[in-house]
Every structure is written in structure tokens, then in C-alpha cells.
Simulated assay, not measured.
Amino acid sequence: MPNGKTIIAGFDIGGAHLKVARVENGRVVAAASVAMPLWQGLDKLDAALRETASLYAGSDLNAFTMTGELADIFPSRDEGVAALLGQISSHFPDGEKLIYAGRSGFVGVNRAAALPGDVASANWHATASLAARLAGNALFVDMGSTTTDIIPVRDGAVASQGYTDAERLSTGELVYTGFTRTFLFGVASSAPVRGQMTPLMNEYFASIADAHRILGVLDEADDKLTSADGREKTVAGSTARLARMVGRDAADLSPREWRDIAAWFSEQQLRMVHDAAFRVAGTLPEDAPIVAAGTGRRQIKRLAARMGRRFFDLADIIPAGDAVRGEASNAGPATAIALLAGAVS
């Protein structure tokens, strides 16, 4: 590695999770995502950093990106960026630190403080940049717990139309739906119950994680926050929560009927992503594959089949040990930050 930086830790400070990846001699050797409900206070970041301390122990360089500035404990994004930079400086007073400022590249903490618009929510740009280097031309799609990024990459570079959240929402490059945390009424306003379209109760009784759990496609390790009612994360518990959304109890319908309703919600989510991906992919060659990252890679594989494009999992093309590939993809921005920082340090 350049300048002897053999151990690099990448951090993605989100609003709901902290993701950390450890790179040694250019390969990802460990990665993790831990629950961090930042809206409850900055002490949640303190706890998450303590929990992941083994991943960055002895690092030569620590590199950071963030979306946590969106948490509503901060009056504005700029103030959120400033607060998180302060936390980084406090937790890592010594050693080399780099902040990812997206279109402005890696910068020091002081320079980052003067570029809040570039630093804020730039994690998507990091992962897309890594995908661009590895795939050349592709539609990069990262579905996490809360959001889905849909980014065209051409000739080894990010080719997005938008940069800020506001811009990317309008271009279809950011879709506010994810594999676990999304409210069910965020993907549909009604659901078919015994042949009748039933309006949903506009209440947070259940999440999309419940639908995916009922369908048997959810890795429980990916659902790190509490359920809507704070009760058990089981098929029975998820069915009870789903039933409330349509004004019923779990005993009212058969398990097969509840699976059909769960499949409806998963399909509605996929259609949202498909609509946006169809728009974004129009700028790419027909043979450009879809490269997927995040906990929702199963949905993205379905998307690729629907769009008639080849599918590649970022986990399969990053330099990493086989045992850590899946978690490294789940923690995509942290993985990307660590690998990209190694290339410039």
C-alpha cells in the first residue's frame, strides 16, 4: 500500500446504523453493521463505536462518510455534519483521518467542515465510485435498510445526474425505500385481502421487514432495530403486525393468505425501484449489468431479471475473503471508503 498504510478502517455513520470495514493490504478482512438509532442522541454513536472497536484497532488510517447528519436531533444538515465531524475528532484524536466529500474527494477534517454540502450524504458516491472502478459500465443499485441508490456508472466513473438528496430524489437516483425499515404504507396504500382491495391503516403497525420475514427471505442478522410493536421477530409476530395494517387479527386468515399479502408488499416495493431504475438506466448501454450492494440484494437480483440485465453482486467482485464478502457488501459504503482511501493515501 502507498506510504505504508497497510490497515485502513472505513466508517459509514448513518442515521440508523454504523457500518465499519477493515482493509488489510488492499483486501477486506472484516466488516460489520450495528444498530445506531442516532435520532435518540449522539451517545448512540459512542456506543456503536465502542461495539465495533476491534474492527479499527491498530489502523493506520481511518476514513469516514456519513448520512447521519439527516437525523432530527440536528437542526440542519450543515449542523449535523459539523456535529459528526466533532465526534470523529473526539473519538479519533490521533492518527490520520480522511473525510469523504464525494465530488471533492477525500479531505481532512478541517477542510470537510468547510464543505458540508459535499460531505453530507455522500456515502452513495463512494460505493458507486468503487463499483465504477470494478465494473466500468453498470447500473449500480444499493438497497439498504432504509433507502435505495440507483446510480449509472460509465467508463469507470460515476455518471449520476444529481448529487444532493433533493436532486437525486427528482432524478430517480434515490428511492426512499429499504429492505427492513420501510413502513408498509410507504410502498402501498391498500392491499388485496380475499379479493378485495383493503385500504391500509395509516399507522406504523408493521414494516417491510415483517413482510420479508413472512416470505422467508429475510436474514435476521440484517434486521437490527426493534419491531414496530417492540415484540418478537418471528413469523407469528410479523403476521400479527401485518394483520393490524388491514384491520384484522392473525387468526382471521390462513398462513397462505398472509404470505400472499406479504408478497404483495414486497412486489409493490420492487415496482417502485423498477420504475426509478428504468429511468436511470436509459443513459447506459444495453449490455451494462446491474451491480448490487446492501441488505436488499435479493430484491435487486429480481430487478435485474425484470430488466433483462446481467446481475453481479458487489460481494463477488470486491477484494475480500470469502467469509466476509456478504457483510462487506451489506456495509458497502464503509467497504468502499476503506478501499478508496487506500488507493489515494
Rank of each mutant, 00 (worst) to 15 (best):
I208P: 09
V280P: 11
D316V: 09
A292R: 00
R244F: 01
Q299I: 02
S238I: 01
I300E: 02
R259A: 14
A304M: 04
R297N: 03
R325N: 07
A331Q: 15
S266R: 03
R309G: 09
G294S: 09
R248Y: 08
S227E: 13
Q299W: 04
I317F: 10
R279V: 03
V280C: 13
L215R: 03
R302P: 03
R231G: 13
T226I: 08
I261L: 10
L215P: 05
V324L: 04
A262L: 11
A221Y: 02
E257N: 06
E267S: 11
R306G: 08
A304R: 04
A236Q: 06
A288H: 05
A292C: 10
V273C: 03
W258V: 12
W264D: 14
Q269L: 05
H274E: 03
A262P: 14
I290N: 08
G321R: 10
V273I: 15
I318S: 05
D322V: 14
M307F: 02
A240H: 00
G247S: 07
P255A: 12
P285S: 10
L253N: 04
A305Y: 11
A228F: 01
D229K: 08
D229E: 07
E286M: 09
E220T: 06
E267V: 01
D275I: 06
A262R: 10
P319A: 05
T283R: 11
L218W: 02
D223I: 10
G216R: 01
I208A: 02
E220W: 00
H212Y: 13
T226D: 09
G308K: 03
V246Q: 05
E257I: 06
A288E: 07
G321T: 08
A277P: 13
I317T: 10
A281W: 09
L270E: 05
W258S: 15
S266V: 07
R309T: 05
L253W: 04
W258K: 09
R213E: 14
M272G: 11
G308C: 11
D223V: 14
R271P: 00
Q299R: 06
S227R: 01
R298K: 08
L215W: 00
A305R: 11
R271G: 04
I300T: 11
V235F: 05
M307I: 02
A211N: 02
D322M: 13
V246M: 08
